[in-house]
Design a protein around this nucleic acid. Sequence first.
DNA 1: GAGTAAATGCTGAAAGTGAGCATAACAGGC
DNA 2: GCCTGTTATGCTCACTTTCAGCATTTACTC
Lengths: 296, 296
Amino acid sequence: MRLQAELVAVVLTVNAGRPWVLAGGEPPALPAGPLAAGESLQAGVREFARERSGFDLGYVEQLYTFADLGRSADDCRTVSISYLGLTRAPIDGSARPADWSALYDLLPWEDRRHLTASGTDRLSEEIELALRRWSGDLDERRDRCAFLFGYDDRPWRAEFALQRYELLWEAGLVAESPTAGRISALTAGPMAHDHRRILATGLSRIRAKLQYRPVVFELMPESFTLLALQETVEAIAGQHIHKQNFRRSVEVQHELVEPTGELSHDTGGRPARLYRFRGSVREERAQVGTKLPLPR
Amino acid sequence: MRLQAELVAVVLTVNAGRPWVLAGGEPPALPAGPLAAGESLQAGVREFARERSGFDLGYVEQLYTFADLGRSADDCRTVSISYLGLTRAPIDGSARPADWSALYDLLPWEDRRHLTASGTDRLSEEIELALRRWSGDLDERRDRCAFLFGYDDRPWRAEFALQRYELLWEAGLVAESPTAGRISALTAGPMAHDHRRILATGLSRIRAKLQYRPVVFELMPESFTLLALQETVEAIAGQHIHKQNFRRSVEVQHELVEPTGELSHDTGGRPARLYRFRGSVREERAQVGTKLPLPR
DNA sequence: GAGTAAATGCTGAAAGTGAGCATAACAGGC
DNA sequence: GCCTGTTATGCTCACTTTCAGCATTTACTC
């Protein structure tokens, strides 16, 4: 059996309060390329992420390996090894902006920052309606929907983005579902191959990781205000965080950040202290469990 | 470039209070085999786990994909996709026992159940001594050792098994370290290829998962006492748990188990209620976050 | 100087955790 | 039948963490 291996990267950055993912083309596709000879997997990902975006990846982590059965002829199979990468790319700057997509254009239901407490919106209602129709009177389905989409007073769990995608896929509500009906307009349009699934995998992973590892750091500039840090976390998490509690949780773990002594005056109000990450975070980030709050 | 793909499985079971892993031969090797054509990855793992052990895997989860550079000639590269699998195989029964190894014979420092509170033993002391020698006066190394092995009153974190293995490897304390010295007798002997690393990856993963997903279930018989459940968790976690608190945390989440109404009389003392997992656990196990305590 | 926007400080309820004591219910020996 | 050992099971208490809101401070803009 002939075998091919390719690397697929989910490269994320946050800019102006919005998360962006390196994905261009029509339909949009994640950067992917063959595994070069004599190169480690991580090095390969870093390599072509730089080629495509012009920026270096900070954090890199393996996501999942897929072996497509359907994609090619039986005698040539492709193994896709997917990676998550974080970078500080300033998008609007020198990079070709066409290569970047707004993450929540591709997974619109994952951004809930505009929702007020216990509030809802057109998209949520549409999904809930469609899902209830799909569930019918099957208790199992109903439970699953309630758990993943937070119906019936259950909390919204940001880190279950992948499972939500899979549910919508089964229910025929995303463009690439085999059973997609007309309501599939939830997503702007199809993405290449199974790239939306890979993207959802990456989003799930970073949201989970955010809660126990100091990875936001990779998305922040050298120095920043606590509000900027919070807004970056919120952008990834797709939901709002109680400001004072966020601030406290950051300050309590005094291994995490330290004030630079400078102030930022473009706040519109009282100037904010600037902070930087402590050196120990950079070095120990492979081990230390550092917690940032996600609301439940 | 020629490319080969192989599957490597970490198949775990718990029996008589000890965790076992499917690994035989000399040196011991995890079951591994080429990726068959026209077969999904998971199906492949299940397939040859059944062949080798005679039992079906319950839970299966992808671990990590390695692409060896060094292992073969430059024009033929092997991609190893590793999986974790859990099964209820009764070892001492019909299966060929030679295929199973006691997990903690392969990673002896990961079992701390015999340690009394704040106590220590020969192995721990030996490791601590060797690690302190290796750290010298390098603060970074010293911190890392303290964090991973719980020196200086830091808590032992069971789920960092992989990082501990990697540290020991760097420090030349396991048989397969490139710089292995005489003290490397920590491990009984070498394992094939990088299989001990893969095993440590699997142990890390299941220990982490145990804390927020009902996976123990896959290791338990149809009905069981709470003590039996606790001992299974302890076997995997490699440490003791406060009995009453364990019991409370199980009972509080009343989605998890329910009494069968029967009693077990072979306790030696007061008979114990028998429990079974609730149906919802089986179905929703892919989603529901169920917590079992690991001491910190 | 008034109004405003944001940073910052503080407090109290609620939930979760860790550790121990006390009691209940059996088996087996006498 | 009673005593003893052993385990299951019930309960309490202190302590920590988390959630959520109120109040105050500080500087900018007009």
